[in-house]
Design a protein around this nucleic acid. Structure first.
Lengths: 337, 337
DNA sequence: TGTCCATGATCAAACGATTGATCACGAGGG
DNA sequence: CCCTCGTGATCAATCGTTTGATCATGGACA
């Protein structure tokens, strides 16, 4: 719309420039292999700016039979700040490729999910990113198969769907190495109790790091903890009993709880105990005292990589997972032994 | 696309049902005032499901001249979890009205913003929501005026643009009242130092509540604090000197800092000091020990209300603001005097 | 003078729907 | 037997673009 409220069409531009719509189209799109005189070109360009013309992409999509839409269905923007990062990553990467993201959040509601998928298909999306805020295995909704799709932060065994997930194993290794690098050799691991790729993966990485450093594997040092603030708080005594000098917490919230418990016992971080978290949940990790050293879940990258896989810019075989690095975020909660 | 990869068009449905496209269109849209025999109807319906036909909304939009798109430009999904809630609110409300949200985040980059606006206009959005993650005054980007628009969590004085903002004054009053209700009469207010609608509004609301309760206005009780964790941490001594029994913190991060400082001094919340925050930043407020009582910034509602205003469902005069309530979120950090 | 060709621009058919106007047909009334 | 009318369905134009085919013009060349 212009100021007068009406939509300016290509025909109006053509009339003002005294040429045909075809010519206008050719000029605007710089169609190669088409000859338009220099002065005609500039006359058209002038008309375009004079009228404030904007092409109607919908019409363009229609005739070209291609759309620049990519769908993103997220299961919960609500409950977590993480989803926002996935969306942002996907959105910016899509943008870079001249695509537009159609976001739908379905709070784990199957009906809403079907609706969202139907809508996306109606909008002729060229592909769909199906994301989950927590790294997990899941079954795909019917309908998803009707478009090209890539899973983000989740995977669907046996479906042949390609997925982009965080590299939990490498992440667990990284966290542990951050502690080992400072000379710690008795490291407790507050791992979550609920089975998940995160639980298994981080544990494996943790062990790999210990083995690599020639440290003993002591199962007693791996203690169960609810993956929340309470878990860390409650596990504090156990950690102290074990005589650990450093703790790898399954996530930042657990670390937060541990902080509180230690403070109440008059212990200092990192002087008395070094702590490393996981997730890099900004508001927590960045604002604890001392700021929490942690390992980041690469949500932004997951979203962005999802788009790249969808657009074929990054190769992933059917049924395979692309594992994205979890980078270390050193802050102030680790001291040398 | 169906399994065979091709897009099913209305013509194919028509052929299979042995009728014209017109008839198919009429049946699918249940066009009132049009007569189609019962058996033809069901033949068409059957063909639709057989072929897995989905209407091409782009074509529909084109001929009808209306689009179901609404644009949302957000200045930073990146730096804050709040933006996510605005997006979610807008998205769900748009959805309820059968609209689709086109999200663009422009990290305060003017060029990106222009791009985003251009893109949205090309997609024939029927309106644009322009949002900021922090409640503030700002100047509108050129181009925004080309479509109907509503500002969310910000306002632009002198432009006549309608805005939806949180009711800071009422919020400040609410927070203070939560403390007064428990018998507190000497209440410190750790207010931010940076000028903003939040600073002025919450202070005004704070004062209104005191006056209403017949309490004295003591300017000494309003102390400056950086609106971060550090601000709260550093202000702890001052609060204790003042002999306040309760503290209203400008935001949850400030409260978090105050928590730390008090814990270090061996003081307990809420027994020794009652605390109320502002923002209801989930990860913080919900996970502090004790959980922080606070006042919520209604980000979800802001987004949703923005859509309603845009769609004319909620009346707001040009240049006026719609103020959205900031509801109290009682948790465990306030004790009776 | 007639032919050929490069140049510059237009024609017209699509894309996939919607929609007001129109048509074919048989029944009922006069 | 003709006219009218209700019923059921189709015709054809339209939305704003793109795009392969086509046309008009004038200069170079034989």
């Amino acid at each position: 719309m212009t100021e007068n409220g009406r939509t300016v069409t290509m025909r109006e531009v053509a009339e003002r420039a005294g040429v045909s719509v075809t010519t206008v189209s050719h000029v605007i799109n710089d169609k190669p292999g088409v000859r338009i005189g220099a002065k005609t070109r500039s006359r058209v360009r002038q008309a375009v700016v004079d009228l404030g013309y904007r092409p109607n992409i919908l019409a363009k999509n229609l005739v070209q039979g291609t759309s620049r839409f990519i769908g993103l269905v997220a299961d919960s923007i609500a409950t977590t700040p993480f989803a926002g990062q996935i969306i942002r990553g996907a959105q910016e990467e899509a943008w870079r490729h001249g695509r537009v993201l159609l976001v739908a959040n379905t709070e784990a509601d199957a009906a809403a999910e079907q609706n969202a998928l139907a809508m996306m298909l109606e909008y002729q999306v060229s592909g769909i990113l199906y994301s989950s805020w927590t790294h997990q295995a899941l079954t795909l909704p019917p309908g998803l198969a009707e478009a090209e799709h890539v899973l983000v932060n989740c995977y669907a065994p046996g479906t042949g769907a390609r997925a982009v997930v965080p590299d939990e194993v490498a992440g667990g290794r990284t966290a542990t190495e951050m502690l080992i690098a400072q000379g710690h050799d008795r490291i407790a691991f507050l791992n979550t109790t609920s089975p998940s790729p995160a639980r298994e993966g981080r544990l494996r990485g943790h062990r790999e790091a210990l083995v690599e450093a020639g440290l003993p594997l002591d199962d007693a040092l791996v203690v169960d903890a609810l993956p929340e603030q309470e878990g860390g708080y409650d596990a504090a005594d156990r950690v102290l009993e074990l005589g650990a000098t450093a703790v790898f917490c399954h996530n930042d919230r657990v670390a937060m709880g541990l902080y509180d418990a230690l403070r109440e016992r008059g212990l200092r971080i990192p002087e008395d105990l070094s702590v490393v978290g996981f997730d890099n949940q900004e508001v927590i990790a960045g604002h604890l005292r001392p700021a929490l050293s942690t390992v980041a879940l690469p949500h932004y990258e997951l979203g962005a990589a999802g788009i790249r896989v969808l657009l074929g810019e990054e190769e992933v075989a059917p049924g395979q997972q692309l594992r994205v690095d979890c980078p270390p975020i050193p802050r102030c909660s680790i001291a040398p032994r």
